[in-house]
Simulated scan of single mutants.
Amino acid sequence: MFKDVLMPALIDTVYMVAVSTIFTLILGFISAVGLVISSPKGLWPNVIIYKTLNFVINVLRSFPFIILMISIFPLTKFIAGTTIGTNAAIVPLTFGAAPFAARIIESALLEVDYGIIEAAKSVGAKTHQIIFGVMLKEAMPSIVLGVTLTVINIIGYSAMAGTVGGGGLGDVAVKYGYYRFKTDIMIYTVIILIAVVQIIQASGNLLYRKMIK
């Protein structure tokens, strides 16, 4: 049963989570940087950009994932060509997790000592140099912890995606564990998810400790 059902489901889950994480971090980083530099005390203050980004992120974060997933079915079909399967699940997973990642990265960047930023500006550093060479470098340990939390959130989202045909371990848990009353499959699925989360959390904590030394 593990080889025929659980292993393919685990592979699908890893695939969904990995690809979704990449897109989530790209969107999250762009949004976070946009918020930080366009804020009233940012490098390029812009009220319109700041309020627009802030509003969009807050709106997306207010949606429970399962509702968000269903509500963007048309967009999912447009991007992935279908609304079921692992590739289709990547779209709502990304839109569901990106706002969370944006806030995490924004918080990490805002924690950077403003004196360091001022020092960089005083020696003529350009905006992109301050963002990537100063702020991102200083905030990286906190970002690592935030990314760890984001990945764990995406794993949880991927399990929910399985309830509406998203594939992966959540799909197996519903089809076999719930509809066919195979309690052992449900238990195995939960154990696998717990193990995956523990591995990711431990890896994130280890990387964080190495970075702060």
Rank of each mutant, 00 (worst) to 15 (best):
F95A: 10
T148C: 00
V144M: 07
P141S: 13
P74K: 13
V91I: 15
A32W: 01
A97V: 09
A161P: 04
P92G: 13
I192Q: 03
P99H: 07
M7G: 00
T94I: 11
I26C: 02
I104K: 02
I72W: 09
I30H: 02
A18S: 14
T52Q: 02
S142T: 06
T82Y: 12
F55D: 06
A161W: 05
P45M: 10
A139C: 08
L35G: 06
Q129Y: 03
L75N: 11
T76D: 10
T82Q: 14
V190F: 07
I11R: 12
K137G: 00
V164D: 03
N58G: 15
V174N: 07
I22K: 01
G34K: 07
A97D: 05
T150L: 01
S122E: 11
I154M: 06
I79E: 08
T52F: 15
A97W: 10
V5E: 11
I79V: 15
D12T: 14
T52V: 15
Y208N: 12
F29V: 11
Q129L: 07
A108H: 07
V123K: 13
T82I: 11
G146E: 04
F132T: 13
G115I: 06
G34R: 09
N153Y: 07
A18T: 15
K126V: 04
I191K: 04
K137H: 09
I104A: 04
K3F: 14
H128R: 06
G162E: 05
N153P: 00
L35P: 11
M69Q: 12
L6K: 07
V5N: 03
I48S: 09
I70T: 11
F23P: 02
H128Q: 11
G166K: 08
L169T: 01
F73D: 00
K77L: 10
T163C: 00
Y179M: 13
V59P: 04
A119L: 13
V134N: 09
P99S: 11
V17L: 05
I67F: 14
I130H: 02
K51L: 12
